[in-house]
């Protein structure tokens, strides 16, 4: 019993450390990749090829002054960054990186991840409200509307692979794709998931909550130093979560020939992460009404139709 608890704690620690390192190097990759896409070099000065840049950034953020504006609602203002970060990291508990690398192999893994991603919005709403500032409030209002809208489309698109696999357990869904990866029979769901995943994580071209050119920085405008960094950690951890989910639900998770399972998983996940960066370097931001129209009038009806057709086909095959 005690040994099992200690073992689980060690596993959690390893995964958290890996996630945080991954987040740090994702910021480096973002600057480097987008830099090259725009014919710039990106960070080059700190360490060889700028590889120590994330470390320097981390140190800078930690040593910055922690400012608290006078008119904020203090308890909520202090809790918000944690609520923004924790769901993103907690979601990794159920992700199967390889057949035997998973902290908690629970039967409702898909629902667990969806539940956590729906709770993640509290960090944004609370910070926006507690900051008591116009830009922050506008940013968080936009964000909550956006996340509620796109969560529906995302949930509906996830149901396609779940129906095909006949399980909510992420490992069983992965195993069900040994023969054929689900992005082929569920291509429509795959596209809807990719779009809503980008919107759900507030990334470009759906980054209205923090649209720099109109809202300064959106919901986290009043935060500084480490508290600001925690919002970023949360955002990047969430990107990793939706990428992992995409790899598991549509790209066959850790399955694949020759290479070890963990490597396959990381390749698929990082490919989707690259997709995020690619989008950011390519597409301009949507207008808010376009965003809402896309979510409610295009994605949700298509996702519903896809769900209906998938259910009929699955029912016909099983009987």
């Amino acid at each position: 019993m005690v040994l099992a608890i200690v073992f689980t704690l060690i596993k959690i620690l390893i995964i958290v450390v890996c996630v945080l390192t991954g987040v740090a190097y994702m910021t480096y990759a973002e600057r480097k990749v987008i830099g090259h896409m725009q014919v710039r070099l990106g960070p080059v000065h700190t360490g060889p090829m700028g590889l120590l840049q994330p470390l320097a950034d981390g140190l800078k953020l930690m040593s910055k002054e922690d400012m608290t504006p006078d008119m904020v609602d203090k308890p909520v203002f202090y809790v918000a960054p944690f609520l923004g970060m924790v769901p993103g990291i907690a979601a990794f508990a159920v992700i199967p990186f390889a057949p035997n690398i998973v902290v908690a192999d629970i039967n409702v893994g898909v629902l667990y991840v969806l539940a956590l991603s729906s709770v993640g919005v509290y960090g944004i709403i609370m910070s926006g409200w507690a900051s008591n500032s116009k830009y922050a409030t506008l940013g968080s209002l936009r964000s909550s509307a956006q996340i509620i809208s796109y969560e529906t489309a995302m949930g509906l698109s996830i149901l396609g692979p779940v129906l095909l696999a006949g399980s909510l357990n992420l490992k069983e869904i992965t195993e069900a794709q040994r023969g054929l990866w689900f992005f082929i029979p569920q291509f429509v769901a795959f596209v809807i998931y990719s779009i809503s995943a980008v919107a759900e994580t507030n990334r470009a071209p759906f980054d209205l909550p923090e649209a720099e050119t109109e809202l300064v920085a959106g919901f986290h405008v009043e935060y500084s130093g480490m508290r600001f960094a925690m919002f970023f950690l949360g955002e990047y951890a969430n990107m990793y979560v939706v990428s992992s989910m995409c790899a598991i639900l549509f790209l066959g998770g850790y399955t694949g020939p020759l290479l070890p399972p963990l490597v396959w998983f990381l390749i698929k996940m990082l490919a989707f992460m690259f997709f995020f960066l690619w989008l950011r370097a390519t597409l301009p931001r949507l207008r808010f009404d376009q965003l809402m129209n896309l979510g409610w009038k295009v994605l949700i009806p298509i996702a519903l139709a896809n769900l209906l057709i998938t259910s009929i086909v699955v029912y016909a095959i099983r009987n």
Binding site: L114, I125, S144
Partner: peptide
């Protein structure tokens, strides 16, 4: 968590 915390309460806050 999904329905009450993730949807209904967010709507209240909104």
């Amino acid at each position: 968590v999904m329905v009450y915390a993730g949807a209904i309460l967010v709507l209240y806050m909104f």
